[in-house]
Structure formats: structure tokens, C-alpha cells
Design a protein around this nucleic acid. Structure first.
Lengths: 136, 136
DNA sequence: CAGTATCCATACAGATACTG
DNA sequence: CAGTATCTGTATGGATACTG
């Protein structure tokens, strides 16, 4: 019945929720825009083990192209999340690694990946039949 | 001969890291594709307080359009992350809320927002001058 | 109020080719 | 090996109009 709405009305946000919901959405927006692209989190996740070279990263991330890897790496470097060490030697070698800042993000990324690993089946089940009988 | 033969090892991850890096990238990919859009995390974050109606959500998330809100909500509902309760009455009222699954994701989203709030200044500093002092 | 459908702009992303 | 430039396709996302 209609009693479901009795638990809490005033759908706005009159409560003193200390969280940062959407009021300060500006920097959330910025962070989301940065990490919300197709590869950033993958690269960060790949870097969790330590130093990695350009080609190793590319090998590590199946479908990524040079362009996307370079772009992502540049953004990450610009934002101070990864370090870039270039050895201007005969065989060019460039190594990337997470900065402490990047590592802190990686911690959350790891949580996200963990969550994905833990719930992707459930999501797929729901996607097949949204709370209803199986459709396939 | 050059030292190209060195690529036989270390491209993968020789360490016994129990994490799920990029080997099972398929479902990570799926989850990232879903939450990696422009609004999903914002909507989830907005729903953290409990039940919310369509219009309230729209008011809560500044720049979102009907299309994007509907889309995002549909995806979320399809994936079983939010519940949709429609009262097909004279004044159409539809309420959305996070499911336990959605709430578990919201926990990570909260961490992400917290991280963003905590480090966005640092990121901006780096973006202004990448590791070096700004001269301009 | 809630939501969908259409049209349109752009940003994202991939393939290729080229350079250091 | 590492990385950039160009060209192009596609998905994302926004404005508007319309329906239940």
C-alpha cells in the first residue's frame, strides 16, 4: 500500500548528512571525468604491481591502442598520479609507476574491481531478467 | 643482435598478487563501462539518502537532462542496483532507491567521492605545473 | 509528474602512418 | 621502443517535443 512512503518523506536533503553528495559536484565531476574514461582505471590497476614500461602496459591491457595508452598515461602524469621516467638511451626505455597519490586511488580502484568480481554475476542475472523470471 | 630477446619475461605479473588485474578484464570492462559514464555514479551518490523521486533526482543533480536521468536509472534498474516503484495513479509518482547491491556500490562510490574531495586540490596543483614549479 | 523519441553536436576512441 | 599526428567512426550526451 501507500505506507511505503511513511518511513521518510522530504525527499530533499534537509538532513545534516556529512557526505558530499552532489552539492560540491564540481570536483567530483572533474575526477569522474578523468577516471570515467575507458582506460584510466585499467591503467591504474595495471600499475599496481610497480614499475612498468610502455610496451608492457600495452601488453597488459588487451584492447588498448598506442594512442589511448599515451593519452591516458599523459593525463595520469599531468595529474600527478603516475611518474614517468624516461631513459634517453639507444633503446628508448620509459618506465611508469604510481605515485603515492595514484596508489591511494588504486586502493579504491582495487575495491571497485573487487566489487565487480564479487557482484558481476548478480548484475548479469538481473540484466537477464530484471527481478523477474529468466528470459533466455 | 639487439637485446630484444629480453621480452620473454616480466610482461605479465610474476608476483603472486592475488588481485584481479587485467586478466579477468572482461567483467571489469563491463562494470567500468556501466559506471564509467557521465552520470551513473552521481545518481548512485544521490540515492544514498534513501527513496527519491524522479524530479527530486533531477533537481539534485544539477546538469542532468531527462534523457540521461531516465537512461541511467533504467540501466541501474536493469542491473539490479536500484528499485523502481511506480504508482500509476493520477499524479504519477515513481520512487527510486538503492538495492543492497546498489548500496554496496555506493559504499565504494562514497570512498571515491571522499578521495576526490581529499585530493582534488593536489591534482589541480599537479595539473597546473607537472611536478615542476610554475613559472608563468 | 514521469518518461520516451527524435535530432544533433561533440568528445571519445580506434587504425594507420610517421617520427625521435 | 616510445610516442605523436591525422583521419574517421561511433557512442555519449544534450535540447526539444511529444505522450501516458
Amino acid at each position: 500500500m501507500d505506507a511505503v512512503a511513511a518511513q521518510k518523506d522530504t525527499v530533499g536533503l534537509p538532513e545534516p548528512c556529512a557526505r558530499v553528495p552532489v552539492e560540491h559536484a564540481d570536483f567530483i565531476r572533474q575526477v569522474l571525468d578523468r577516471i570515467g574514461d575507458k582506460w584510466t582505471l585499467m591503467v591504474v590497476a595495471s600499475l599496481h604491481g610497480g614499475l612498468m614500461r610502455y610496451k608492457d602496459l600495452q601488453s597488459s591491457i588487451p584492447g588498448i591502442s598506442q594512442r589511448m595508452l599515451s593519452r591516458t598515461l599523459s593525463q595520469l602524469h599531468q595529474d600527478g598520479l603516475v611518474t614517468r621516467t624516461a631513459y634517453a638511451e639507444v633503446p628508448p626505455r620509459v618506465e611508469y609507476a604510481l605515485t603515492p597519490l595514484g596508489a591511494s586511488l588504486n586502493d579504491i580502484v582495487a575495491s571497485l574491481i573487487d566489487w565487480a568480481a564479487d557482484h558481476h554475476e548478480e548484475i548479469r542475472r538481473h540484466r537477464a531478467g530484471t527481478g523477474a523470471a529468466d528470459a533466455s
